[in-house]
Design a protein around this nucleic acid. Structure first.
Lengths: 139, 139
DNA sequence: TCTTGACCTTCCAGTGACTGGAGGTTCTAT
DNA sequence: ATAGAACCTCCAGTCACTGGAAGGTCAAGA
């Protein structure tokens, strides 16, 4: 099957599939006319990649998962560990965003939001060292 | 003050400050020796940027907020609107991550995690069209 | 047969927001 | 005088694509 069909079947953009070939995640054969020829096994890999990426695994993690996937002797525990690490990362990101949301919500609450030219949000951003918002500093 | 002091005062890395100058977010004067000379007003901008970036505003949003910040006539309502839009974005990201976490947790729960070579996580990633996880497809 | 248009190819450049490094100048302390 | 820190510019790399130019191939219709 050509790249267009592979794209449709896998849910990955054509450009992305070519990119994945570039970085060695998939190695489709070539037809005589130079077109990429995707076998079912290639399509499997692409679907795997689509799914894993949509679950937030990085390209390098996908590479690792793929090699576990191909390795008939890999332990289920290895895959489980990678996934658990990923869950912890997701948890961390959620917590960060929730704290961010809290600060932003406080700012909006404190802001009268009319056409006056004083604004607590701007005040906070421009120094605000003595406002109620304590958790400044980079994450 | 030199870039090193500005970095320390603002909490932004030296490289980042130079980058911000490149893209026109800050315009420090130059001393005779070619060194950047940061005035208090420059430092204000840098602190503003540090804070706004840490709150998840993009560079372009920071540019907008800065121009509102400089504009003595801007309405508080404008700033409030930008912030509210940002909160909605943060909410969306949190929801995405929570759904992602649910799927990953389900996978880990289903995975026996021993040294057997069958693994529900890999099974899910490699097609898994008839597993219990429904929300595949790109976000 | 010719043409149109869809699909395919490669290659180069850009995204966002930095970060790292090379190679060179200036300042400061000893 | 000299060592080392701090500064300078410029170029390249990061991540995971995405867009576009310029051109080759294929299938269908006139």
């Amino acid at each position: 099957m050509n790249i267009g069909a592979a794209s449709e079947q896998s849910g990955l953009p054509v450009k992305t599939i070519r990119y994945y070939e570039d970085i060695g995640l998939v190695r489709p054969a070539r037809s005589e006319n130079g077109y990429r020829e995707f076998l079912d096994s290639d399509l499997q890999r692409l679907k795997f990649l689509q799914r894993a990426r949509s679950l937030g695994f990085s390209i390098e993690e996908c590479r690792e998962l793929l090699s576990l996937y191909e390795d008939r002797n890999r332990a289920s525990a290895d895959v489980r560990e990678i996934t658990k690490t990923k869950i912890k990362e997701v948890d961390r990101k959620i917590a960060e965003l929730q704290s961010l949301k809290r600060v932003l919500s406080d700012l909006v609450k404190a802001c009268h939001g009319d056409d006056r030219t004083d604004c607590p949000i701007i005040d906070d951003l421009s120094g605000g060292l003595d406002t109620a918002f304590e958790d400044r500093g980079k994450s």
